[in-house]
Structure formats: C-alpha cells, structure tokens
C-alpha cells in the first residue's frame, strides 16, 4: 500500500467508500483547520476492492468525528498518539446532524424558508433512521448525494 508519511498525533480514517474522502474532508471541516491532511483515493483493499483513506495530523481533541458514523458507519477510525495506534474507535450514531444533508420533501418548510439550518434528528437508533427536524420526513441515503 502507498505510504504517506507517519503521523505523530491524529487520525487515520480507513475503509472509506472509494470516492467519498473529499466529501468527508468537508463534513469534518478539515478545509477550515490548519493541519496536515493526506487524502488517499482508490487504495486497493482486500475487503472492499477499492477504498479511500484520510490521514489527519492534529491534536486528537480538536477534531469532532461524530458525523462520521452518520456519513458511513463502516469507516474505521484509528487514533494515533506518539506515532502509535492507541485506539480503534467505533462511534455511535450522532443524535443530530446539522448542515450535512438537505430535506428532499417538497412540502417541507425548509424548501422555501430562507436561511433555515438543515437539521436531522436520530429517530430510530436501531434502524438508523434520521428525520427532518421540521417535517419529520425520513432521510433517504439513496436520494441524496451529500
């Protein structure tokens, strides 16, 4: 596998669905942070065929990863400190998802009201169903590109 420098402190996000890494880059707000990021696209994977990997060099307390479980629950999160993996994290689904997805219900007030934040809440933990905070329409992952 391609090796992009070793990280002293930060995260290696592995098993990202191929082609999704840039989307994650934005969802995590990495474009606004002053840290070193390596984006590896289409890496070969035994399990997945192809996958993306994100390596982020940063203080591990500065990055909020909650949204990852929503975007893709299969992502592996390796927490790195002093050059070693100190933890493999799995995240619970976030209770609320803000500004990541849009409501696609054409009858929803959020389609006409200006400057309304797009907020979804976790309605069913078991089935991983998110609903629009305004109209309660369920979010359909296949209907939204990100």
């Amino acid at each position: 596998m391609l090796n992009v420098g070793k990280i002293e402190e930060g995260f290696v996000l592995d098993h990202i669905k191929a082609g999704k890494s840039l989307e994650l880059y934005h969802h995590l707000g990495l474009d606004k942070l002053d840290c070193t990021v390596a984006i590896i696209k289409n890496a070969r994977s035994n399990a997945m065929g192809k996958k993306d990997i994100l390596k982020v060099e940063c203080n591990i307390n500065t990055l909020n990863l909650d949204v990852l479980a929503f975007v893709d629950p299969d992502i592996t999160i390796n927490v790195i400190k002093n050059g070693e993996i100190i933890e493999k994290k799995s995240l619970p689904l976030p209770k609320e998802v803000k500004g990541i997805i849009r409501c696609t219900n054409p009858r929803c007030i959020s389609t006409i009201e200006q400057e309304l934040p797009q907020i979804f809440y976790l309605a069913d933990d078991h089935r991983a169903i998110y609903r629009c905070r305004y109209c309660d329409a369920a979010y359909n992952p296949n209907g939204i590109t990100g």
């Binding site: 389609t111 006409i112 305004y134």
Partner: peptide, 10 residues
Amino acid sequence: RHPKEGAATV
C-alpha cells in the same frame, strides 16, 4: 396554519 410541513416548528 400553513401548507408547508414544519412551518409551526419554525
């Protein structure tokens, strides 16, 4: 009363 869903929440 509003025709859009979620209007009262807003």
